[in-house]
């Protein structure tokens, strides 16, 4: 199980990387390599050239802006998992990272790599879509950006063009005083890709009324989905309201069927995990320290 031959280049700048990629249809980006290398080993992917962007300084680092956290594409998943800024300001990302692969793959795997790989059951794309993150791209014409739900097109398919690469992910930061997150997934083994994953984030006021809510599903369809449960704003996220909102939002859910799980399983469990994630988020918000104290 050896990859087909390829050239390997490690450009010194992002601009040079984009130029290399733009000038060669058979070139492909490699960063952490945790999903690309198995594809290469099985010869399911056979680029003529790998452009290694892992050490580009422009792609590193985690930066907090006024209303967002910008995570450099080559940030290792393990690094993000430990990062205090992410824990405080993008708690949903911190919550799901322990479910991404396992420790050794998180030591090499990058946040941007998981986004670019666009596996429909992967956790990081789920967070990006659920929170409405922006995918920042480097192109030969300079930086560009697009909303996560436009970036993901289908299983392992994105809107990215040859000559572009993911440079960062801008996760919005909720500025409410009290927010909470919930996350559940079902997989055969803990580290396997999820049959179904659900992530929720809520913001509550002092009376525990919902000020904002985001709910997303992974593993069910051909890409991560954000469900519209805005009808929950103003409620106390009681079981009945939540059930109504989730059922209304998931009534037309397209679900995949495969060896591991039937479509009806995915649809049924999706509803349940959504409700559990919402409830967990509500409970989390009730006990999580207010923003100023985080």
């Amino acid at each position: 199980m050896k990859p087909a031959p390829f050239d390997y280049v490690r450009p010194d700048s992002l601009a040079e990387a984009c130029k290399l990629l733009a000038g060669d249809d058979d070139a492909r980006v490699i960063a952490g390599g945790q999903t690309l290398v198995p594809m290469l080993a099985m010869r399911l992917a056979r680029p003529a050239r790998l452009v290694d962007i892992l050490r580009l300084p422009e792609l590193a680092g985690i930066r907090k802006d006024s209303d967002s956290v910008v995570v450099g594409a080559t940030t290792r998943q393990a690094q993000a998992e430990r990062d205090p800024v992410i824990r405080a300001s993008v708690p949903m990302l911190a919550r799901v990272l322990p479910w991404v692969g396992h420790p050794p793959t998180r030591n090499r795997g990058t946040i941007g790599g998981s986004i670019a790989n666009a596996d429909p059951s992967a956790e990081i794309p789920l967070v990006a879509v659920t929170l409405g993150a922006e995918i920042v791209l480097a192109t030969t014409a300079g930086p560009a950006a697009m909303p996560a739900d436009e970036f993901f097109v289908g299983p392992m398919v994105t809107s990215i063009n040859q000559g572009e690469c993911v440079s960062a992910i801008r996760f919005p930061v909720w500025t409410h005083q009290r927010i909470g997150v919930g996350f559940f997934e079902v997989s055969a083994r803990k580290s396997d890709f999820a049959f179904v994953a659900a992530a929720a984030q809520v913001a509550l006021d002092e009376e525990e009324r919902c000020l904002d809510v985001a709910l997303g599903l992974g593993g069910v369809g051909d890409r991560p989905l954000r469900l519209d449960v805005s009808s929950l704003v103003g409620t106390r996220l009681d079981a009945k309201s939540a059930a109504q909102a989730v059922h209304a939002a998931s009534v037309d859910l397209d679900a995949a069927s495969d060896l591991h799980a039937s479509a009806s399983y995915r649809r049924r469990v999706a509803t349940t995990l959504c409700l559990r994630a919402l409830e967990q988020a509500r409970a989390d918000a009730a006990v999580r320290p207010a923003l100023g104290a985080r």
Partner: peptide, 19 residues
Amino acid sequence: CTVLLDGEPVRSCLLFAVQ
């Protein structure tokens, strides 16, 4: 195939030697 890279376990089959 686990080895340590700067003390952290990684899969040496998912890393090219040139990296």
